[in-house]
Design a protein around this nucleic acid. Structure first.
Length: 505
DNA sequence: AAAAAAC
């Protein structure tokens, strides 16, 4: 079996890999690293969780280990669709470059330009960015991309979903023709195919998804509910969620609850907290410092339940989530696959449970069609929801309550489910000897537990305070460095298929 | 119909 030491990586990079506890590359790493080191373009088709971040980080660092950056002219560029993803990639660079003298900058929105400008001015070897902020810097004349020797596009299919493709094309056109391009996508949509044909030259194509075996480690289920009264629909749904969580008991070590809308993320998180659960929200309207803090806590095991919009559905490297709860049925069937893909990773078992209202049944059917598989129906964990309680006629007359449901409606009613919340936060210790990539145990570095005050729904609060969230690496201790969670052959088979394949059958 | 990402 191939070892990292067989791959011709720079010795100092190799040393950092060993110190991080890794020995054997995942399939995508074994496939992508050699051609990348030869200077070839690489087209990597792989899901998150397959170790692709290290698949481009390691060869890049090796290639960049010689030479020095000039002011405002980064030597390499990594583009990511979300801020969190970019921050993760940056952590990877920190981990593996600790014995090299390379500089990097993280250019993401939501934080001030100042720090970022300073770094760029000094010259960086590695620039990690989300497209919007990168172009912003460029337009202000602060940045030249003509020195880029290596460019990485990460999660290209997600970039496509988010409408970033024009930006990506523009950025491509700002970099030299001679650059090396490493391009990663989970699927090959026609539009992605077009981009790769245009901007990659004779790429080495590395595809790992297909090799996955059929072992399904994600246990799925759905609860069909029907509100007993329309004006109670939301609170009843939250009660069902709590009952589902309670029903899992100790088995639920940490979980992500997905909602379709940001407002519901806030409401559900707040309701859970109020009921004694250790939960916090994350979505794009929260300011960046809070997003970062919440995610860090969740990773460190200091937060048990992350209530999230689809900002967290893909790409986030959250290790070993035991449960995913779909509070809402996602309206794009693809999103379901990405959401539940947050659990059952790295060979661990995972459970994904969803709540489905009558009005969601169409979307639900689309999911089952995509999966080509029936999702087992679970009995409602709450007695009255969905049962035969007669519907009050008055519910009809009442003007629908304005969407903001006051929290007093939340906790009162169906408290039949045992209320003792699973407060016991059990930071699960991962097994120590995964074959592909061991998982360094994350150490909380700051315990500051401010309670996320998630009221703010004002628009435009994107610009957080400066000075956080750029975890620019200094002082990250050695072995706690960041992981690429390996999984190799423990992926449910349907995840391994492209969406087209799933549709076709 | 919603979320994400630039100010």
């Amino acid at each position: 079996m191939t070892k990292f030491s067989d791959l011709n990586l720079n010795p100092k990079v190799l040393k950092a890999i060993e110190e991080a506890g890794y020995e054997t590359p995942t399939p995508i790493q074994a496939g992508a690293i050699p051609p990348a080191l030869e200077g070839r373009d690489v087209l990597g088709i792989a899901q998150t969780g397959t170790g692709k971040t290290a698949g481009f980080t390691l060869p890049m660092l090796s290639l960049l280990s010689r030479g020095r950056a000039r002011a405002r002219m980064p030597r390499s560029l990594v583009l990511c669709p979300t801020r969190e993803l970019a921050a993760q990639v940056a952590e990877n660079f920190d981990t593996y470059s600790k014995h090299l003298k390379l500089t990097k900058a993280l250019l993401i929105g939501g934080v001030s330009f100042k720090e970022q400008d300073k770094l760029i001015d000094k010259g960086v070897d590695v620039l990690i960015a989300t497209p919007g902020r990168l172009l912003d810097h460029f337009e202000r004349g602060k940045l030249l991309l003509t020195g880029v020797q290596i460019m990485v596009v990460d999660e290209a299919d997600r970039m496509l979903d988010m409408g970033f493709i024009p930006d990506i094309e523009r950025i491509f056109s700002l970099t030299p023709f001679t650059r090396q391009t490493l391009f990663f996508s989970a699927t090959m949509a026609p539009e992605i195919e077009r981009i790769t044909n245009t901007f990659l030259s004779a790429p080495a194509r590395v595809e790992v998804a297909r090799q996955a075996t059929a072992s399904e480690t994600i246990e799925q289920g759905v609860v069909m509910i029907k509100a007993t009264r329309r004006d109670r629909a939301d609170s009843e749904k939250r009660a069902v969620l709590r009952a589902l969580i309670d029903g899992e008991g100790e088995a639920c070590t940490n979980a992500i609850v997905f909602c379709n809308r940001k407002i519901d993320v806030d409401v559900v998180a707040k309701s859970l907290k109020k009921n004694g659960y250790d939960a916090a929200p994350i979505h794009g309207d929260l300011d960046q410092s809070q997003r970062t803090r919440t995610l860090d806590q969740f990773r460190a095991g200091d937060l048990k339940i992350l209530v999230a919009s689809d900002v967290a559905a893909r790409g986030l490297d959250v290790p070993a989530v035991s449960h995913v709860f779909n509070y809402d049925v996602p309206s794009h069937a693809e999103d379901y696959v990405h959401r539940i893909g947050r659990t059952g990773r790295a060979g661990r078992s995972g459970k994904a449970m969803m709540i489905c209202n009558p009005r969601d049944e169409k979307n639900f059917a689309a999911i089952e069609a995509l999966l080509q598989k029936e999702i087992p129906r679970l009995d409602s964990p709450v007695q009255s929801a969905g049962s035969d309680t007669p519907v009050e006629a008055e519910a009809e007359d009442k003007p629908a309550k304005p969407s903001r449901s006051r929290s007093r409606t939340v906790s009162r009613k169906k408290a039949d489910a045992p209320q003792e919340a699973p407060v016991e936060v059990q930071a699960e210790t991962p097994p120590e000897t995964p074959k592909a990539e061991p998982k360094p145990q994350a150490k909380p570095q700051d315990k500051s537990q401010d309670k996320p005050q998630d009221r703010g729904q004002e628009r435009n609060q994107g610009r957080g305070r400066s000075g956080d969230s750029g975890r620019s690496g200094a002082g990250r201790g050695g072995d706690q460095g960041n992981k690429v969670v390996g999984m190799g052959d423990h992926m449910p088979s349907f995840i391994a298929l492209s969406f087209d394949e799933r549709r076709v059958g």
